[in-house]
């Protein structure tokens, strides 16, 4: 039982942390960032290189967040800002960005970096060992969801960005500089990807294709979750976490991954707007009644 819970925490954290940057950018801007995996990879590189240079891991992680955030801002100003509202074009263009980033990193740092060791060791409960670091990742994922919830519901930036998401033209007529909101949002999404990369850098091999492993789970989580960048991933992370944990435990990781895709296809058939679409429908009904 503890094993399953631990596995679930692992899977949940991985899904949430994979998806959150993508979800914020897609949910708020309708931009599909195919370079999301490479933003994660960049975060892993920054954290690994900084740690190797003697900077403490926590500080290295912070450096990744800031670094990828700034990188995202530059990509936004140079490229994405010309594509606001053009979802399909954004797919093609960000795919291009991802290729450039992969090749760029390959040229600069070669095919792989020496991997960091996972910090914090493990604790033993009922005869099994559990990695403390991975438990911490689960806590981080939860804290991140709460912080983002507060950012989007309790701040002026959050209010303006939710308004811009619903109707950008009217938001502008209310004095909101929507372009600035979008730039900032893209940068936040990138910074979150950077955080994810940094957090997972000590747990797996860091190479130019590091982001590949995150891409499928992140997209499945966002698709199943629907447009709302917080409710969506939280719910789909939970459900998909349970599904993949169950399948992992019975038939192994391959079927765990396959299960994610099957759930994604089912959810799209049954509720095209994902979990958050369903929640919004219910909440409107409740507030009307």
């Amino acid at each position: 039982m503890e094993d399953l819970l631990y596995q679930f925490m692992n899977n949940f954290a991985f899904l949430i942390l994979s998806a959150i940057g993508l979800a914020v950018i897609f949910g708020m801007m309708k931009i599909i960032n195919l370079a999301h995996g490479e933003f994660i990879m960049l975060g892993a590189y920054i954290a690994t290189l900084a740690t190797k240079a003697g900077i403490p891991l926590l500080l290295s992680i912070l450096l990744s967040v800031v670094g990828v955030g700034i990188f995202g801002l530059i990509v936004d100003r140079l490229i994405i800002s010309r594509l606001y509202g053009r979802t399909l074009d954004s797919v093609v263009v960000t795919w291009g960005v991802s290729l450039v980033m992969q090749q760029g990193i390959l040229i600069l740092f070669g095919p792989s970096l020496e991997t960091l060791s996972t910090p914090l060791g493990s604790i033993s409960i009922g005869g099994s060992d559990y990695s403390l670091y991975r438990i911490l990742l689960f806590v981080t994922a939860i804290v991140l969801l709460i912080l983002l919830y507060l950012l989007f519901t309790k701040t002026t930036f959050g209010l303006h960005s939710r308004a811009a998401m619903q109707n950008a033209e009217i938001a502008r007529s209310m004095g909101v500089n929507t372009n600035r909101i979008y730039s900032f949002t893209f940068s936040i999404g990138a910074a979150l990807a950077g955080l994810t990369g940094a957090l997972y850098a000590p747990t797996m091999a860091v190479s130019p294709t590091f982001g590949g492993g995150f891409l499928m789970p992140s997209f499945v989580t966002v698709i199943v979750g629907g447009a709302n960048p917080l409710i969506g991933p939280s719910l789909s992370g939970g459900v998909l976490g349970v599904v993949s944990t169950g399948l992992d435990a019975t038939w192994g990781t391959f079927f765990g991954r396959l299960g994610l895709l099957v759930v994604a296809i089912l959810v799209i058939r049954i509720m095209p707007l994902g979990f958050s679409g369903l929640v919004e429908k219910l909440s409107v009904r409740k507030s009307r009644g």
Binding site: L159, N167, I170, S173, V176
Partner: peptide
Amino acid sequence: YVPQGHGVFPTLTVEENLMM
């Protein structure tokens, strides 16, 4: 500006609309 069709933000609350 009050747009044609009123253009309230539907999923924001009344107060949040006013805060805008």
